[in-house]
Design a protein around this nucleic acid. Sequence first.
RNA 1: GUGAAUGUAGCUCAGUUGGUUAGAGCGUCGGUCUGUGGCACCGAAGGCCGGGGGUUCAAGUCCCCUCAUUCACCCCA
Length: 423
Amino acid sequence: MKHVTAPRGTFDVLPPESAEWQELERVIDEVCTRFGYQEIRTPIFESTDVFVKPIGEGTDIVDKEMYTFTDRGGRSITLRPELTAPVVRAVLEHNLLQTLPLKLYYRGPIFRYERPQKGRYRQAHQWGVECFGAAGPEADAEIIALGIEVMKAIGITDYRLEINSLGCDACRHTYREALVGFLRNNADRLSETSRERLERNPLRILDSKEQRDIDLLNLAPTMDAFLCQACQEHFATLRTLLERMGIRALHNPHIVRGLDYYTRTVFEISSTALGAQNSVCGGGRYDGLVKSMGGPPTAGVGLAMGMDRMLMLARSAKGGEAHNGRPRVDVVFVALDEASALTLVPVMHAVRARHISADMDYTRRHIDKQLRAAGDSGARYAVIVGEDERHSAEATIQDLATRERSRIALEGVVGELAVRLRT
RNA sequence: GUGAAUGUAGCUCAGUUGGUUAGAGCGUCGGUCUGUGGCACCGAAGGCCGGGGGUUCAAGUCCCCUCAUUCACCCCA
């Protein structure tokens, strides 16, 4: 094994697994479109500034996880670690906020320099949606519903949706003071890492996994008591809407999210099937983000889902299927000699032109082997031509499930297959 | 970035207290069957035992380093 290998934390997607990715991408496109979102594609890399301010200094992503380098022109460039900030950048650059509300979705790779683990990669893949210009809770509800719709469509049923409100700038600030005050007084009961966070990013302590932190937090003041009237109403209406849409959401006052730009609604979807990396989806409202990036004050809500993790969940829900590594087509053409192959190639081309999937084994091996491979691959029909058929301008069509054979004129093959496969 | 476990054929894994030429099942390819599959039987290809160094008469096996994966922490998708 002296080959060059894929870089740490990256992976190749090979067939037949690549088909699962195509299916997931198709579902994302379909559902987002159905909900009135349009796709946006932004560059894989951006100016480093795009991420530093919006995500926030002091967050792990900015402090130690970004792939940042200087290009030949001396510019600081970063491989995108998430997509909300690049989307906002593009929206402002092209003045898309002229027509509100603006509803966009995206999917693609993101990069974070982390120690790899199951469900955590240096090149990961996310899809997500962003809705700009809608301040009301209907937008929050729509986005959560959209996320769940996508999960349902690929067969994920075992998950947990948790929501919380962080309040607006005003009420969050008062809460923050209260929380910090309380934690300072009890600093000796906090874990070491949380004591450090007390100065840099105190809200993050809320979702600590340390038992001693959890115990202490049960006594700490909670956000609910500090929400202003408007924030309270927003959150209450969101919960009512979700309930009326048949979406069960648990209120977890300890959800805070890792990025600085969230306001009011935050939510997370997780599954125990993923081990320690149990979060599949995260999102929330970021009413201050657009303005902080130099745009007009604009409300925004969004969500991001990890495609790698979704596929892991979809797989564990389905269970493994056996494949023999061959492409799956409906019709397999079998030529018994060179002349037959030359006769069959144009016929196969015509079949493919009729949107019927077809393939032919060009190795010209023994008919036994060809039929066996055809059967294993899951094909429905074999079209066989050898010396006999060629002399009478015919082909043998065999139903691979029933083994029934019949001979028909070569020129009738396309029509016959079209009819048989339609049922 | 911290701690731990594991790396043997394309895949899943055996390989004893160090001891001839490193094995099995599945898969792949060929044959039994000069033109009709899934079964069966026979055969073949495929390995610097993750990489490097060391101990030893002798290393897949013991020691050190390194790379990768997995698990937990951290963090998040």
